[in-house]
Design a protein around this nucleic acid. Structure first.
Lengths: 134, 134
DNA sequence: ATAGTTTGTGCGAATTCTTCGCAACTCGCA
DNA sequence: TGCGAGTTGCGAAGAATTCGCACAAACTAT
């Protein structure tokens, strides 16, 4: 398990719970802490929701996981490797679509050049109305 | 008070509380429900937080107010007239900067043309790192 | 392998933010 | 002026997330 280094290098331990949380995030794609907990409980029923929250935070600090705000309030998590697209959230049907990051390349560059602002387009969703709902 | 029509046309009333909430949102720029309540209480101490929440929602339905997700979870509100910029949120210093909507024009058009997705860029913040924090 | 140290886990309670239920109230129209 | 529907206040109910603590378990150095 290569992830072990990321953790151990910072004095953190690779516990079964932590492995399960990471595995769940990788399998689920976007998912809320609640969904991660549910997934993990399929094979390890005793895991506590607090533990999931704590591990998501820990894994995020280590850089194995990241979170995105899709709206409504709560954050959703996904594996860091998968962060190759931006999220298009439809305000009507609530669907979350994907689009490649390079659609935003010009936009990102403009903000960088004109305002010195380094944008992470995938951290927040892009809100609007999808093609099906217009 | 011209706002009266927007409300009355939908069978809604212009109560003192509602006027105060709207006035507060207009004066404050971006603000959380809590901040709106605080502002309103300066002149009308008895107003209830629930009332603020309900009125923000009502005013939003009528189109006088809109909300934006700046991150952390809660929404922030501002007058509809002021929605002429997008929000640049710095992940380090938490500062919220503004940029004119047209910086995003190409991006918005690209999403529209390529994905049929009609974007409202100002609904979600644009996340990144501001020039001061790099 | 084993003991010891330190981090992690489970559990329940505490917080924070937002929504609800309901009785009393009042805005707007006749 | 009076009626009826939309509103308000208040307290309670919810949902989501965080905390405190005692116990358990992972890694390190024997």
């Amino acid at each position: 398990m290569a992830d072990k280094h990321e953790l151990r290098d910072k004095g953190l331990r690779l516990t079964p719970q932590r492995e399960l949380v990471l595995a769940a995030v990788r399998e689920l794609g976007h998912s809320t802490p609640e969904e991660v907990a549910e997934k993990v409980r399929l094979t390890h029923p005793g895991i506590n929701l607090s533990t999931v929250y704590r591990n998501l935070e820990t894994l995020e600090n280590v850089g194995l996981v990241q979170h995105t705000h899709l709206g409504h309030g709560g954050a959703t998590y996904h594996a860091a490797e998968e962060l190759t697209h931006l999220h298009l959230v439809c305000g009507k049907c609530e669907a979350v679509g994907d689009a490649p990051l390079d659609v935003a390349a010009n936009f990102v560059n403009a903000l960088s050049d004109e305002y010195g602002f380094k944008t992470d387009v995938s951290h927040f969703a892009i809100y609007g109305t999808c093609s099906n709902c217009q």
